[in-house]
Each structure stands twice: as structure tokens, then as C-alpha cells.
Write a protein that binds this DNA or RNA. Sequence first.
DNA 1: GGCGTTAGCTAATTCTCTTAGCTTTACGGT
DNA 2: ACCGTAAAGCTAAGAGAATTAGCTAACGCC
Lengths: 192, 192
Amino acid sequence: MPRIGLNQRSVVREAARLADEVGADRLTLAALAGRLGVALPSLYKHVRGADALAQKLSALATAELADELTAAVAGRADGEALRAVAAAYRAYAHRHPGRYPASQRVPDPTDPEHVAAGERAVGAIRATLRGYGLDGDDALDATRMLRSTLHGFVSLEAAGGFGLPRAVDASFDSLVAALDGAFRSWPRGERP
Amino acid sequence: MPRIGLNQRSVVREAARLADEVGADRLTLAALAGRLGVALPSLYKHVRGADALAQKLSALATAELADELTAAVAGRADGEALRAVAAAYRAYAHRHPGRYPASQRVPDPTDPEHVAAGERAVGAIRATLRGYGLDGDDALDATRMLRSTLHGFVSLEAAGGFGLPRAVDASFDSLVAALDGAFRSWPRGERP
DNA sequence: GGCGTTAGCTAATTCTCTTAGCTTTACGGT
DNA sequence: ACCGTAAAGCTAAGAGAATTAGCTAACGCC
């Protein structure tokens, strides 16, 4: 029985590819093992189980998304940064329909890499808003709004919730423009 | 063997209750059958299978959500309608943590009730925006933005994606206020 | 070259969904 | 009242997924 030379990294990477092909919810250990050329129980030498695999997949996807958002915001500010980050966010969800939902799982507190990736992703979102002059609770609220809107849009889009896919690109552009306006004229400081 | 007197309606209603208790993804036919006091295969007399049950559950949840949104918008306009609809939407997701994700499944085209419920829900959202003087593509885009933002917020909140749950209520109020501003000053008609 | 570590295997258990086929209840028409 | 039928419930059986236990053999280090 020749050794394939698997390790946790290669297993999780293949799981990510498979998830993008068949959907995150249809990712199965049996299919993954078949894809890697090993018997199913062999996977347990590298991941603790199906749930742990999902967690590691989430960490990978979150790190990738954080990288792309960080790259998008770098060297840009204000509306330009917002448009670039929004486009990068949606592009990642399109390109990786299996990884994206995995990335939304709450980071495992016992996995430092996962936690760090989550913080980098939120940091990129927060950095996008820096040019709008928001701070304190306003910055927190605006960050949450931006995350909510982007996540909601790409989730509904992926689920086919927008009926005809006709003008979805244009709707997204409008949404980003409206967000830009909202952040410019943010209803400030009416909180204790 | 005494008959319990089940029908599709009662099965789906119990599934909804169970989903709210254990989570939509942990809803299992075995648990549902146990709850109803019948053997598992007996459920197949009322629903065609696990996926069909999920579809019917989605139809129920969508109808309930549509009802609550419709009631919230009735007799209100502009910012008041927006605040009422947003509060009703979030309240439904809080009250029914299992039904809510089910409600986001795309309606089954072969189930007229489901399709109608979906249209009523979107109709309530669209009606909310009526007072803002948006029409055509602007109304479409604004509707999509409102749906995206509400869905994204309650999804992230339910997943525990907002870190400390401390100021989530205040963040939601800010979000609704920002949406109100965005709809008032919607960047209009820059589309062919 | 020997030896410990570990990657990978087979076998077996549990849980879920599903189908097949049987029995008995409830109901409607005569 | 009674009988025939539709359907509500059952048991039995099987497929697919995750998991655990325990075995074997390849690799890496001295």
C-alpha cells in the first residue's frame, strides 16, 4: 500500500476545491477520500472528523477572503476603496461558491489562525470605512452594516433569491453607491 | 394500532416547532416522528421525503414572515413603515431561529402557495419603499438592497458573527436609520 | 540495519433516509 | 347495518454517511 503523502493542509485544500464543485453542504468525507485516492477512514489521520474539517475549511476560506479584501483596499480610499472591496467580496463569493458559505462560520476560538483570519477580514472592512470619518460606535455600526449588506446580497444571489438574474450587476452597483452615500451622511452619535 | 390523525399540515407545523428548538439543520425525520408519536416511515404518508418536508417548511415560514411584514407595513409610510418592517423582520428571525433560515429557500415553482407567499413577502418589502418615490429599476434595486441588508444582518447575528452581542440592538437601529437616509437620497436613474 | 512513528487499510457500529409490502382503521355507498 | 376501498400506520430491509477499533506496512532517524 503506497503512501500518498497527505497532510492536513492538502486534505483541506482538496476539500475546498470539492466544496466549490459540489456545494458546501454536499461535501462528504467519502467523496473527498475518493478524490484523494485513499479510503475514507484514512482521512481521520489528518482531521478529527467532518465537523473539524468544516472548521478548517472555514479558516482557509476566511483567510483567502481576508487576503483579497486587504488587497482591494490597499492604496485606495473613500468611495474607491468601498467599490473595490465590495467588488472583491462579491467576486470571491462567485469564484468560490463552496468556500464562501464556509467562510461565514464563526471562527473557532481554539484555532489561532482562524481567529486571526477573521480579524483580518473584519479589519479590511473597517479600513474601507476609515476615510468616511466614522469612529467609536459609528464605525462599529457602519462596519456591521457593510458586512450585513455584502453578505446578504451575495447570499441571496447565490441562493437564486433574486428571480431573474437580469440586472443583478446593476443592482449591486446601485447598492454600493447607496452605501457610499449612507456612509458619507451617516446619522451620527445619537447614542449614549 | 390507533390512528393519530396526522396530515401534512400538522406534520409540517410540528417540524417547524422542532426546527425552532434544535435548529433547521438538525431537524431529522426520526426526531420528528418520535415527537409525533409515530414510526419514522409513517411520515412518508404525508410528505414525500426529507427534502419535500424542508420545502413545505420553507413555504410555511415564508407565509408567516410575509404575514408579519404585511401587518407591519399596513397603515404606515416612509421611515415609520421602514422601521416597523425592519423590526418585524428581525423579530421573526429571533422568535423562529429554525423557521427563518428555511424561509430563505427559493420557492418551489410547483407549489403555488409557496410561490404566492414569496411574492407576498417581497411585496411587503416593496410596499415599504413606496413612500420614497422610487420606481422602475430604482425600486427594484432598493428592494434588493433592503432585503440584502435585513437578511445579512439577521443571518450574521444568528450565526454569532458580531462578536460581543452587547450593542447589536443599537447597531440595528443605526442600520435602519442609514437605510432611511439612503432611500431618501437614492442615487437615481444612472442606468440605461 | 533496527526500531519507533504514523499513514493507510479492513471491519464493524451507529444514524439517517428511503422503499417495499403488510395490516387495520375509517369512511362512503348501497 | 354492511362491505369495499383508500389510506394511515406498522415492520423489515437496504443504501449512504460518520465514526471507532485495531491491524499492517512504509518512512525517517539513529
